[in-house]
Design a binder for these strands. Sequence first.
DNA 1: CGGTATCCGACCCGATACTG
DNA 2: CAGTATCGGGTCGGATACCG
Lengths: 130, 130
Amino acid sequence: MKVKKYYESVAPYGREQCAEIICPIQFLMDIIGSKWSVQILRELFRGDMRTHELIEALPGISTKTLTIRLRELEKYGLLIRTVYPEIPPHVEYSLTAKGRELKPVILAMKQVGEQWLHQESCICALELSG
Amino acid sequence: MKVKKYYESVAPYGREQCAEIICPIQFLMDIIGSKWSVQILRELFRGDMRTHELIEALPGISTKTLTIRLRELEKYGLLIRTVYPEIPPHVEYSLTAKGRELKPVILAMKQVGEQWLHQESCICALELSG
DNA sequence: CGGTATCCGACCCGATACTG
DNA sequence: CAGTATCGGGTCGGATACCG
């Protein structure tokens, strides 16, 4: 009886391989649409990073979720995991060429996201009335 | 006691308003990252659509999910819902100017998505060994 | 340091039946 | 035709403790 490693049991829920019709936009969303995925990629665009650097750069992420996301992105060929056989362990993550193809997507998202963020009236803003 | 309408009870799970630090990329993902959202927007970029036209254009979506996604996108100001007081009911959805600002994002996603889709070896392909 | 195992609440979303 | 109510399975992902 094959036992799945725990991070294999988690996959983007919308993904349906080889459906009759595949929308390339949804196809991409299924790859990068999980929580934290784009933020991990965003960090790696700044340069190669070690695990604890990612954890520090992404406040709130758990080691479990980080590992799952990294394995997914590695499986999709977007990043490479390099292990240096040292003690204590030393693991480095870096974007592949394929991963860097996401740059225009992430740039476009950044541009629109910033624009909308600045327009948005903050829900937490103090109400002066009353 | 206020009773939430059922579609108000559903919101993108990653959204945290007014966090100390907000990544504009994640901010955008929280708006368009739910299942079906980008596909709905993709259809509306082709022109205004009625509810049943969207259902036909998005095979697999339920009326419930469609309604929830449409209300979300309307709440974010990305589309407008127009009701024509007729019998039978006639409702039309159209992108707002803000919604159309997503065009470069969706185009970039489409481009990369198509490229990767064509590279991908199909998991369902027959295995010739054995 | 990096990763794993386990538990568990939250919620996403599909199916179905029903209303005006 | 468009939308609502309700149910329920699946899984997402956070918290925590532990290992080599």
